[in-house]
Design a protein around this nucleic acid. Sequence first.
DNA 1: CGCTGGATTGAGTCCGGTCAAGCCTTGTGG
DNA 2: CCACAAGGCTTGACCGGACTCAATCCAGCG
Lengths: 216, 216
Amino acid sequence: MAYDAHPPAETSMAKLVLRLGVKLRFAKDQEIFAQSDAADLLYLVVSGAVRTMRLFGDGRRQIAAFYFPGELIGPEAGAVHRFAAEALDETVVVAVRLSTLDAVAGGPELERAIWQATRRELERVQEHLLVLGRKSAAERVASFLLTLARRTPGLHVSVPMSRQDIADYLGLTIETVSRGISEFKRRQYISATSTHQFRLTGLSALQTLASGEAAA
Amino acid sequence: MAYDAHPPAETSMAKLVLRLGVKLRFAKDQEIFAQSDAADLLYLVVSGAVRTMRLFGDGRRQIAAFYFPGELIGPEAGAVHRFAAEALDETVVVAVRLSTLDAVAGGPELERAIWQATRRELERVQEHLLVLGRKSAAERVASFLLTLARRTPGLHVSVPMSRQDIADYLGLTIETVSRGISEFKRRQYISATSTHQFRLTGLSALQTLASGEAAA
DNA sequence: CGCTGGATTGAGTCCGGTCAAGCCTTGTGG
DNA sequence: CCACAAGGCTTGACCGGACTCAATCCAGCG
């Protein structure tokens, strides 16, 4: 899941998208695509970050995933998007029509790359499912921080999303997320340089928590 | 998600698996494959039913999915299974080595079929995610019954799994599942002919509940 | 330097979990 | 064919963790 773990096929697809695609810029909270929009574009995040989400009729919201620079959005969808995508922040993406990609570089190579992207997406969602199904609030927050940490080297974690975004990703409320983070600070599992920048000072304690074992 | 909605590519793959595969019989609760087993086989459920699940260190269990006759298990996995699979009941599956499938009918047709199966799997997991992230106990149970109902025609729903299985699928306890079902009976949303056979007598009420809107 | 909106903290409530009885179905053996 | 045992399911009483409501804090920004 770290950048350097991307299989070759997808890395080369990313390069292809960069070459063929159109660069688009989105402001914070701006919609990149809506639920039930046609899903004929593939997106590569260049800078910033993206959330995909579904909104329920009564205002409840579930965030399905976050996407960071270097990651692809889109191939998981069928003809129509099943989730909406929004920029977390000032964000640049490169978009390319799937048919264009196919015309220029179609064939088994492309199919395999798209399948790999879909497969990785599936694995992520399955891990997310475990967190939502069987973990306590503290375990969820710990899992979340560790997942973010895995995407950047070192113990420094950048958390570009709001507490509300985290809550809607983890199936919690902002208050519960905030309490979790405060508790981790108190126990010195983490230290904060700002509300969105942490340092994981008790990595193993967090890992124990996230894995769902009882901690001392 | 109903049988007749299966895209052609996957239906033809199912036929291929049936022709090339080996028929295996499993007793109730018997393991079909373990987590971290090599994932080089594709399974087609012929009769019975299968659950895939992950077990945590402290005994907590999350069921990822249920599979019924006509459905494929396996293509979602990488080199190694990330979940274990067990028979819900006396179950027959046909298993075929992916390399065999590839040798006999390799090529873009097969790749596309596997990708489609992966994609449908992803969609299912994403819907499951919404249920776990943002729904109340009653909403979860309603969603579950409706998902099962969608797989067979008519209002009759067969629920072959135990209450414990349902609980571990929905992120609840058996008691809460049982209370939910009892409440639905009381309100006459469902009627039961046995503990594992229901009739959806209040379909629209269940749908309203499951969709997450406030009900009267 | 004050304003604004996100984040934190506190108090109280409630939904779902826990613990504990019973019930009912299924299967088995007399 | 019935008696009984075993295990899954249901129901009840109580508890606790996460939610709700509300007040404050604080960082970023004009």
